[in-house]
């Protein structure tokens, strides 16, 4: 399997000075996807930003993994709602332009 877009989980942990068990916990909670190739764990580069955000929430803000799971879910909802607000605002402006 190609590992071009994958980053070794161990390397990531060394760079961020965190325990590899932390990544395993995140995987258990479904917060990150870990790919195993020849018994080595890898993280997809696309997930890096998300993972770094989780690290900030966990280490900088002292939020536990259960809290991060709930926050991630709520932030996704906030994003969806923000998109919906934009669509509705644009729709509303159509009616306002028509003087209705």
């Amino acid at each position: 399997m190609e590992t071009g877009n994958l980053i070794s989980a161990e390397e990531f942990c060394i760079n961020h000075k965190i325990e590899i068990s932390f990544i395993s916990s995140l995987q258990e909670f479904g917060l990150v996807e870990v790919t195993t190739v020849k018994e080595t764990s890898y993280i997809d580069a696309d997930q890096l930003q998300k993972l770094e955000k989780i690290l900030r929430l966990y280490y900088d803000l002292d939020i536990n993994i259960e809290g991060i799971e709930a926050i991630t879910h709520l932030l996704n909802r906030v994003n969806d709602m923000q998109d919906e607000i934009i669509t509705l605002k644009n729709k509303l402006s159509l009616y306002e332009d028509n003087g209705v």
């Binding site: 961020h16 000075k17 965190i18 690290l55 900030r56 966990y58 280490y59 900088d60 803000l61 002292d62």
Partner: peptide, 17 residues
């Protein structure tokens, strides 16, 4: 910007986004 890593990660030097 982006949060202080207040010693939570093994006393490394604080990195800021």
């Amino acid at each position: 910007f982006g949060g202080q890593s207040g010693g939570g990660r093994g006393g490394r030097q604080a990195k800021f986004r």
